[in-house]
Nucleic acid binder design. Structure first.
Lengths: 338, 338
DNA sequence: CTGAAAGCGCTTACAG
DNA sequence: CTGAAAGCGCTTACAG
């Protein structure tokens, strides 16, 4: 096996084949101008040397990377697997790769976004401050956000219809006879969390039921936090207990259910519980959770497709809203009259 | 807002500040030789222009990217979330980012591995042919594999002790009185699959029990495939049914359990079932699955740590073996005498 | 302490 | 059809 101390470059291939680096470049890239015989000799030389182009050099010149960046602070949880997987498949179909950057360090993220490492980004704004967003806009960076409803020349978004679905879910519980409905909050300031909560509140108000702060527990979109909040709540309950809970997402719904069971109550006999998202994990959980099934895969696919249109300048930034679907299963029931 | 048609480069900062690009570069990179006053003026100019360094140019010169590449064909399944998350945290601690490449296209993967886009890679060999591996070695690319026991100057690995644990799990079932034990196979040729199967077979042989092909079902490490195989198996069972099954991983164990229940049998009363990995999902599944809990997080952390040592040339390739832990829960029981 | 110049690996007008 | 040269954005000896 040939041992080389330095990386083989186009220069080595030129030497080996007896042609100039310019011609080698053309032959290697299929620029259709090289004599077939020449091309063949060059390809043979490249093969012999195990030449692999240095993408950095290539990209510096081309100013494109055929890569899409996905930036997030965490990939954990069942939502992201599905999303990232869908994005990767869609991107690959169009000759693009997906690059997942996982980092808490805003500087790292911003540098690689603005450092031309990818041709466009899919991201969450909550990592980025408004100033950062301005920088993204100013630099003309193509971006699609999946957690915020934005649209500008070079920036689009693909979000769920969180407000209306929060409202619809609450109305469903009302229709089942529930009057005292608690809410497991997500993370304040996050699009889906705020939308779902506002929908919940407006549905109550429209039904003539006052919104009560004491019925809104912290869930942080996490199982553990929701569990803890629920246990704490049930240990020191208000004079009149709610009969149902709407949770900001499935994970916190699961945590709530576990908390309810932990405290010796039953679901749905004592409390109906409803989640949000329709993650795969629900299939393993008992009782089967009622939820609003969101088209996560579609979100990923559409986000990538739109981003590619932005990159090719086939479109200007658009805000897409995806509809979810109410799924009533075992964790909710008609309110038992006492 | 300043509108610029071209990306701001170091040249613009030089012009704006009145210094040369060499000095600007030094000031920006904290090369401690620039007069404080100069540095300050340069930084101010860079700020004013919203300068962000082009990573491509930087990396082309430096020949390092501070990025680790993780290559996989799919990120789905509960194993990868945990692994990738752990890797990302560990890498960030050392100033590195993780780059997840998801692709079925070997060419794309290989090009970016060999194209100097990352400083090192963590991967599965099964995507790469032996020739590809040779190329990786020849180029001196630092790599850590997590699904194969390899070690060379620049290549290391971090694997689970699959053979011994397959053997231990089988011995556990034997100790519980089971004599006819079926096996849900993973994917042939994959390290963990082969190791676990071999361990299973050797444990049987050591106990004087012949290995029977008809008791080895296809599971492909997937829930659905295992479910289908189990249902098919139970529809046309051999004259004497097994009393226990060992599955190649948790997902296929879950599929098997669902298949068993589907056919009207019970777990563990009719069949004990044992999985492999100890994924988080088990927490939601009933019955609580017995399994071999593998330290997935540790695997990710160790893989990154070792890779960084390889990159810094602090170590040469080593093969690490991680121990798993037998967890006996509800899905296995002492064999009922008939 | 500062700057002109060379060079990282590549591509692409342009000339021949 | 082929090649010499310029240049992508950056860093780093080297000279001053």
């Amino acid at each position: 096996m040939l041992v080389t101390k330095h990386r083989i470059t186009i220069r080595d291939v030129a030497k080996e084949s007896g042609y100039s680096i310019a011609t080698v470049s053309k032959a290697l890239n299929g620029v259709d101008v090289v004599k077939p015989h020449t091309k063949q000799k060059i390809l043979a030389a490249a093969e012999r040397l195990h030449y692999v182009p240095n993408l950095m050099g290539k990209q510096l010149k081309n100013a494109q990377t055929k890569m899409i960046g996905f930036y997030t602070t965490s990939i954990s949880g069942p939502y992201f697997s599905i999303l990232v997987e869908a994005m990767a498949r869609e991107a690959e179909k169009h000759g693009y790769g997906i690059n997942v950057f996982i980092s808490y360090d805003k500087k790292v993220v911003l540098n690689s976004i603005l450092g031309s490492v990818v041709d466009g980004i899919i991201g969450f704004e909550d990592l980025l401050t408004p100033q950062d967003l301005d920088a993204v806009k100013r630099e003309g960076i193509k971006a699609v956000f999946i957690d915020r409803d934005v649209a500008s020349e070079t920036i689009g978004s693909v979000v769920f219809d969180s407000y209306n679905k929060g409202r619809a879910a609450t109305e469903q519980l009302l229709a089942m006879g529930h009057r005292r409905i608690g809410f497991i909050k997500g993370i304040d300031g996050v699009f889906d969390a705020d939308g779902r909560k506002a929908g919940y509140q407006d549905a109550l108000l429209a039904a003539g039921i006052p919104v009560q702060e004491e019925l809104m527990l912290d869930g942080l979109f996490e199982e553990q936090a929701a569990f803890d909040s629920m246990v704490t709540f049930l240990k020191a309950p208000p004079p009149e207990l709610p009969t149902a809970f709407l949770a900001g997402n499935d994970l916190s719904a699961i945590g709530s259910v576990k908390g309810i069971l932990q405290m010796g109550y039953r679901v749905p006999e004592d409390f109906s519980v409803m989640g949000f998202d329709g993650i795969d994990l629900l299939e393993y959980f008992t009782p089967k959770l009622s939820t609003v099934r969101n088209p996560i895969k579609e979100q990923g696919i559409l986000a990538v497709a739109h981003l590619l249109d932005l990159i090719d300048e086939q479109a200007s930034g658009t805000s897409f809203v995806l509809e979810g679907e109410l799924c009533i299963r075992e964790s909710t029931s008609i309110r038992q009259e006492e």
